[in-house]
């Protein structure tokens, strides 16, 4: 997948100011940056939830920057949105079925649901429960499993670690690595830069709607500007001590 000079607006605000990058097949690409840098907007522009005003988005040779979400999904790009956006009043099983909405091979769908339960055994136990009643970590699993049900070639995850306990986060990231090993490309937006870089092949750093840095993981890990992107440039002289609570 390839983005070139993408600009997206929210009302009068220019949220993306010409974003360009590529996601090579079969790799995990991490999109890093502080709050409000434009990471989520980038994913929304790709998936068609918000339409880019300028620039091109290309997926396997098809231009998709003007496509509605249902067409983007059909082409093989699936988004696990921030906050998960499960169908809270539907059961876990129904959530998974809806993930396969565009598919018509019901036998295969059943098999994929089985596969999801093997990957996340806890979901098999909870399959008849309303998704809204699950814990945060379980909901994240449902969201990922639901997105996989469309058999995507590219899976995009928006802040999968948000609001989860560290142990669960580790589990989720392990799953993401496995999904990549199954041949699905991954575009990962994550505030937790260390965690993201620990599994990524390649990273881009966004700052106020622009890509300001890119490189492989080793390069990014040793670059102090990554931290600046999150905490800002060095402030004035230090006081003796910060107060701890």
């Amino acid at each position: 997948m390839k983005l070139d000079g993408v600009e997206t607006f929210y009302g009068a605000v220019k949220a993306l100011k010409g974003v360009s990058f590529t996601v090579p097949d079969g790799s995990i690409v991490a999109l890093l940056g502080g709050n409000g840098a434009g990471k989520t907007t980038t994913l929304r522009s790709i998936s068609g939830l918000t339409t880019a005003r300028k620039g091109t988005i290309e997926f396997n040779g098809t231009r998709i920057e003007k496509s509605p979400p249902e067409r983007v999904v059909g082409l093989g790009i699936s988004l696990v949105p921030q906050g998960r956006l499960l169908f809270a009043e539907l059961t876990v099983a129904e959530n998974l079925e809806l993930g396969a909405y565009l598919r018509h091979d019901s036998a295969e769908i059943k098999r994929d649901i089985e596969k999801a339960y093997e990957q996340f055994p806890i979901l098999r136990q909870k399959r008849a429960q309303e998704a809204g009643t699950l814990s945060g970590g379980q909901q994240q699993m449902v969201a990922i499993a639901r997105s996989l049900m469309s058999r995507p070639k590219l899976l995009m995850l928006d802040e999968p670690s948000l609001g989860l306990a560290p142990m669960i986060v580790a589990e989720i990231f392990e799953t993401i690595r496995k999904i990549r090993d199954d041949g699905v490309s991954i575009l990962l937006v994550e505030q937790n830069a260390n965690m993201a870089l620990s599994i990524a092949n390649f990273g881009y750093v966004l700052e106020s709607g622009k890509v300001v840095m890119s490189g492989n993981v080793a390069q990014l890990l040793s670059d102090p500007r990554v931290q600046q992107a999150y905490l800002g440039q060095e402030a004035g002289p230090a006081a003796p001590q910060a107060v701890r609570h």
Binding site: G48, L49, P81
Partner: peptide
């Protein structure tokens, strides 16, 4: 029914529904 479930899904979150490929 598939359509019935899609309707319930859309009622809960139009955005998530469109991410499933539902028009």
């Amino acid at each position: 029914s598939k359509l019935g479930k899609a309707m319930r899904a859309t009622a809960q979150s139009q955005e998530a529904a469109s991410l499933m490929g539902i028009s």
